[in-house]
Design a protein around this nucleic acid. Sequence first.
DNA 1: AATAAAATTAAACAAATGATTAAAATATTT
DNA 2: AAATATTTTAATCATTTGTTTAATTTTATT
Lengths: 210, 210
Amino acid sequence: MAAKNNEKSAELTTEERIKEAARKVFHRKGFAATRTRDIADEAGINLALLNYYFRSKEKLFEIIMLETLFGFMQSLALIMNDEKSTLQTKVEQIASGYIDFIIENPNVPLFMLSEIRANSGGLMNKLPIKQMVSNSVFLKQHRKAVEEGKIAEPHPLHFLMNLLGLIVFPFIGKPLLQGISGVSDHQFKKLMMQRKKYIPVWINAMMKIR
Amino acid sequence: MAAKNNEKSAELTTEERIKEAARKVFHRKGFAATRTRDIADEAGINLALLNYYFRSKEKLFEIIMLETLFGFMQSLALIMNDEKSTLQTKVEQIASGYIDFIIENPNVPLFMLSEIRANSGGLMNKLPIKQMVSNSVFLKQHRKAVEEGKIAEPHPLHFLMNLLGLIVFPFIGKPLLQGISGVSDHQFKKLMMQRKKYIPVWINAMMKIR
DNA sequence: AATAAAATTAAACAAATGATTAAAATATTT
DNA sequence: AAATATTTTAATCATTTGTTTAATTTTATT
């Protein structure tokens, strides 16, 4: 009966506390390695309350997964559909915004990618992601830049893979990269902050945006 | 002690069959989601034989994990320590070699990165990876290129993160990227083959190698 | 062929784990 | 205050899962 975050959790309902705990544990360990007892302990509630409020581990997971995926894609969509900003500015905003976001939520990228693979597409179809991107201002601007000869490689997926790869991979590969290089957590974060400015420059240079 | 080894090189011993099955299932589902019964079924053997030959799920996993990690790093090390090839050539060989490897072993990258995170460094210290890279010809050549002003960004970790990110991320993010773009498996592979040639060019452009 | 050793199998065990139940505590309504 | 509804708890259930055991079959040795 040890109460954990009394200040923080005093404001939350039991249902919300379970959800926050579930988000934390699922993000860190993934679905398969997470025990319902881990979530109950993290939330400081009786195990039975998890099923009382959410019926099952699966149902609770699906809520967390959809919210995580939606949050991740929505912030991308908001930037991508700004009519006023240039393609160049969008790249800057995506790099800066996602690096900040991942520093705050370091487990989200690997969690998302692992669980999407495990559910192999079943989850992807619950959100209208394809339309969201295929109708985006970002894509129109990319297409126009290609037509005007400002971008060398025509396929927009290369553009997106390069941008997301440069942003996300260092975080996903952090333990490996630290094992290779021996940089500290502090040094690593410093390098990531550098990349907020570097990545748009790099993308410019490699995709030949003029 | 004469007669046991009837040369049946096409066939595998029971022990080898279990290891191959374990590799397959662990790579696809990860440690936590893998059931020992999955491995036994995949290998077509009785469940008890798994413990007869390998003592426990953990021991078997550790063997697979170390072999996977070692194989992945060794192919990198071989290229990186070639005294004769230029930095440029090394980038080409790494991009081409790893893209081919991952096309053949599509589950290995996410498996490695997930399990390294789960074991948080415990596994990384079992292999002398740091020395392997820090003493590499690759790093010496990178340092020299920076001194001669041929590479703009001095930190070699940025170079490595960019190179690996451009190579590996598209595979790790494949389900997400396909969900976004709707490209088929065949189209996706075609794009990956393109990247074998593109990535060295991109790296040149972004890192300003001259 | 007889015997010993090794490999394989079916069955079962013990711990872990997701879920449920019935009672107790708390809050809300009458 | 009494009655009712809601929330929480302790205990337990049923299944899954890693592992072991004891018996059986196959292989190797004498």
